[in-house]
Design a protein around this nucleic acid. Structure first.
Lengths: 339, 339
DNA sequence: ACTCATTTCGCAAACGTTTGAAATAATGCT
DNA sequence: AGCATTATTTCAAACGTTTGCGAAATGAGT
């Protein structure tokens, strides 16, 4: 049922000239008679001619489309990353095609294959958690399509990366809790097979050590979801009633912990101060509002897009670049005690 | 710097046969000698041949890509819509290319133009709030590219639509508050130039009328953001201290109202019961958790994708279809009183 | 041996665009 | 008038794939 976008051939036929003349006239080629140029350009405007990107793509091997593969864009963090990518991409006339892996290795492979055959100009990828084999990325590398990894590093592949300084973020959050008088802080940590889980834990421990606070056997709890925190914390509080600070690996877990604190009738931040990590949307919603570490999703996206575009436009083959962005401590009420 | 995806020509050259034979061999055409078929298919697999979608697109005017234009995909609701679209699209071998309008008419027009020249197979669109001229949509209609509008209706254009029953949703939420003993409910309403603003207000009023509760001059307040609620409510409470229920046009506004209630030391839901609208992510986060109306974003996306695919595949030109999905009342603690 | 049918394959055009090279037309110069 | 320039336009190939049609080769039937 599709109609018909106006083509160069249409214009050529109407003006009784050849397609090549029309093509050149449209791009102001000096070889073309000014009068012909005028005719062509006017008619093109009148008919609302738009060059067919697909034909251009086939000819020039350039689609002006970049493929973005993320685990799940429902997560606020990934939405912000994608927003950042889209902004920069659009500024350079690129569009983005988005696919989710749902953290599944197989879906990730499928997506890569499908987008490759659509002549994508490049990829921006956050790997799925379950990805342990990297052949699909190596394949992309061989074909020569540029790639940038975001948030999760892939050391097996020679590609650009944009990461965030997890260690330092965790360090800053913990330090902040200490400065607000916390002496007995626990860390709700992410899974230790993921880099972010490890790095954030290490930042936490480093801050404790630096302040001479000794680490107890229960100082680090593996717990990285809202519900898990709701289950874990009451029991933890009953065993250790002098906990006065919580640093959670992400905002959602912090929210769960906050609810648990209220359940035992203690006050945030007076009795127990809390910090999350991400600075997601919900940190403004909680009561009290949540202190957290801004993970700079939007900036990460922007950076990734810039790196990719640079790579796409360059024909020199410089080595892979890794950018590490700084996090920022965002202080809100959940950690602020009058001193 | 791009390398080279394997093409039909490559295979043809290696086997010393013509591209057309390769093409036919790959699709099991009866004209081809079984032995040749076998050779071709084996080599194709070995070289990891994938048909070039761009060439197919140019030839068949089918890109297997659908364009999605939403105001801002950072919003949870739109993320869920997009997720629903992606799921159905992928199942049929389609991919989605996403653009945001940021609620700007001009960006919307730009996006439509750009995606049109990429030979998109169809559009799924949520209009920007600022869109008052519909020529860009009419242009799409003329060219014959199918379109489905989601959440916000566009009456000026003959296109399929997926909407949600805002009136009924608002009615159900209000009714629920009444059943929980609220006698003096106010509605924080959306802007009255938007259909959802009007419909939800009307649903609210209908429920009051049906229960014989009289509507006061302050029963409806135009207020549709978290911050606005935080500013408005304290003042409203000081003038009317017997308010015992709040129905907000969206979850975020409900959260603002909830905070305000706490500020005047009243309890949710005992003193004031609250319902939002959307069932966004945050409704599980608030304390107490927020009763709300599920707006079925994921289902809307799925429906929209199915309608679009049907339209794309059909060559019969049936009239525009409007699907109205039912909302669902999700009861949580913010409205539940022991009876 | 000749015709006819069958099997198997290649040619060429098409999708819309760009671009080097060739062709044509128009002008200037002697 | 003849030739060389210059200005303007067209041709043809290319990108990767599909597909109608024709061609070549084989085999069977007479």
């Amino acid at each position: 049922m599709k109609g018909h976008q106006v083509t160069i051939k249409d214009i050529a036929k109407i003006l009784h000239i050849s397609p090549s003349t029309v093509s050149r006239a449209l791009k102001d080629h000096p070889d073309i008679n000014p009068q012909t140029k005028k005719n062509v350009q006017e008619l093109a405007k009148k008919l609302n001619y738009k060059p067919n990107q697909v034909a251009l793509n086939l000819l020039q091997k350039e689609s002006k489309i970049i493929g973005v593969i993320v685990p799940e864009f429902i997560h606020y963090f990934f939405s912000t990353v994608i927003s950042g990518i889209e902004k920069i991409a659009n500024e350079s006339g690129y569009h983005i095609i988005i696919a989710q892996s749902n953290e599944s290795y197989h879906k990730e492979v499928e997506n890569i294959q499908a987008l490759l055959s659509s002549n994508i100009d490049g990829f921006i990828i956050t790997m799925a958690k379950t990805t342990l084999n990297f052949d699909h990325f190596k394949n992309v590398e061989e074909i020569g399509v540029p790639m940038v990894f975001v948030d999760r590093s892939c050391e097996e592949v020679n590609a650009d990366e944009v990461l965030v300084d997890d260690f330092d973020g965790a360090y800053k959050a913990t330090k902040h809790l200490i400065e607000n008088g916390c002496k007995n802080i626990i860390h709700l940590a992410g899974p230790q097979n993921l880099e972010i889980g490890v790095k954030r834990k290490e930042g936490f421990l480093a801050a404790l050590n630096e302040s001479g606070i000794d680490v107890k056997d229960f100082s680090v709890q593996i717990c990285d979801s809202h519900d898990h925190a709701l289950r874990l914390m009451p029991e933890l509080f009953s065993r250790h009633n002098n906990i006065d600070g919580i640093f959670a690996v992400n905002d959602l877990t912090a929210v769960g912990a906050m609810k648990a604190v209220k359940m035992i009738n203690k006050k945030v931040p007076e009795d127990i101060a809390i910090s999350g990590f991400t600075n997601s949307f919900i940190s403004n919603i909680t009561d009290p509002e949540l202190t957290t570490i801004d993970q700079k999703g939007f900036e990460m996206g922007q950076h990734a897009a810039r790196m990719l575009l640079k790579r796409i436009k360059s024909d020199e083959n410089y080595g892979p670049v890794t950018t590490i962005l700084n996090t920022e401590l965002v202080v809100r009420k959940s950690s602020l005690r009058k001193k």
